[in-house]
Design a binder for these strands. Sequence first.
DNA 1: GTAAAATTAGACGCCATTGTCTAAAACGTC
DNA 2: GACGTTTTAGACAATGGCGTCTAATTTTAC
Lengths: 234, 234
Amino acid sequence: MKDRMTPAVRMTGHTQRGQCAKRMSILDAAADVFCRQGFAGASIDEIAAVACVSRQTIYNHYREKETLFVAVVEDVMNRANAMLFSVLSTFPDRADNLEDELTAFAVRLNKNCICNHDGKFLRKLVQTEGERYPHLFESWRQQGPGKLTTALSALFGRLAHKGALAIDDFDVAARQFVALGNADLQMMILLGGTPTDEELEKAARNAVHTFLKAYGRTEAEKAGHPAQLAAISG
Amino acid sequence: MKDRMTPAVRMTGHTQRGQCAKRMSILDAAADVFCRQGFAGASIDEIAAVACVSRQTIYNHYREKETLFVAVVEDVMNRANAMLFSVLSTFPDRADNLEDELTAFAVRLNKNCICNHDGKFLRKLVQTEGERYPHLFESWRQQGPGKLTTALSALFGRLAHKGALAIDDFDVAARQFVALGNADLQMMILLGGTPTDEELEKAARNAVHTFLKAYGRTEAEKAGHPAQLAAISG
DNA sequence: GTAAAATTAGACGCCATTGTCTAAAACGTC
DNA sequence: GACGTTTTAGACAATGGCGTCTAATTTTAC
């Protein structure tokens, strides 16, 4: 019943750094093994081996397998959310050269949030263990894809107000933007592969091209409603 | 080493029907348990219980766990492929009322091929065990999504030749059609839920609406190139 | 250098599961 | 009703993983 962590408050940097390194090493290894083998198929021994750590050390830091699993998921979710937030902040806010800017944004989104290590991990784990840990992945649902959709929705709304896009339903447009961006990568995403930069670029270009054919405004249309441009920029 | 199945050639209908019923019962139960628990997490005892069958009966029909798993995947894949073929044969071939017809087709596709029992099973299992059984799911990749894309590509090509659509790259358009159709259902698909008929209808309508904004031809365009219509129909 | 804390290797009990085996029961055919 | 086949329940050994414990070793703080 004694709390092994309480002495830590008296520790200075070095021990904490050493402990922290072990913890991260374990979390990384566990993420790797859980992702490949699933919760049931993953063995603590294998995780310990991958982490270059004794099995007992794992039990010291995380009481049992399930605790470790929860910690891994939360860790990956935090990283993924931070990355998503970071990428969302690069959404283009100018209307000029929209096709190129949206394409570059789609590349960033796919590369850093959807096709990267953490994205693959979360997608796979949500499918594999989602029903077994509803509360855990509910927060992923709301903070991951949920946040992505609502944020994108607002950002598209801003562009539409500037007269750069003609969108009736921003939520639908946001979901469709993401869906189009993944259209050419679906197979790779499902199989867990990693697209090359060329594939990412091409997929994003196809997606944005179609998206703008559906929601873009012609130069003539923009010229016909200059007031919308002035209203925002003024 | 003795082959338990050889006496079966002498059997008359009833026994075979009984055996076949057992086999199907086992396959269904195993699909259910494998899907929920994954390969490692599924236990033969649970499968036997769900199938209302003795554990030994499973070992009589399928030598070991892995044999059973392979048989289950092949069984589901056959059903899914048949359904996909069936739905593909209902693709609209007329250009009139295209939006409604494409919407209805998208509903059929999502309802019967992607969001149904077999579709969910295959998607989940491909993600969970795809790396462990590459050859097994390679055929799924080619006959499932691969066939869907190439078939849709050809079907859109037919519509384009009739002048109903303006498509430059049929493969890209086919993938985007599927992606748009899933855009509003992504979350439910990932979580393993089943959309209601209203949700299916709305998702398909949104998808086709955007798809036709990008690839549809205006009445004016169609009128400007009546030759394409005449060339096919004549 | 010393003391405290963390880490390690290994053994251990426990439990679930796999796959085999056997004898009894149920089923279908004749 | 007799016979062959299939199915069943249960016991069984073997395996492997989880989680605990201990004693030795390393790391860190002071």
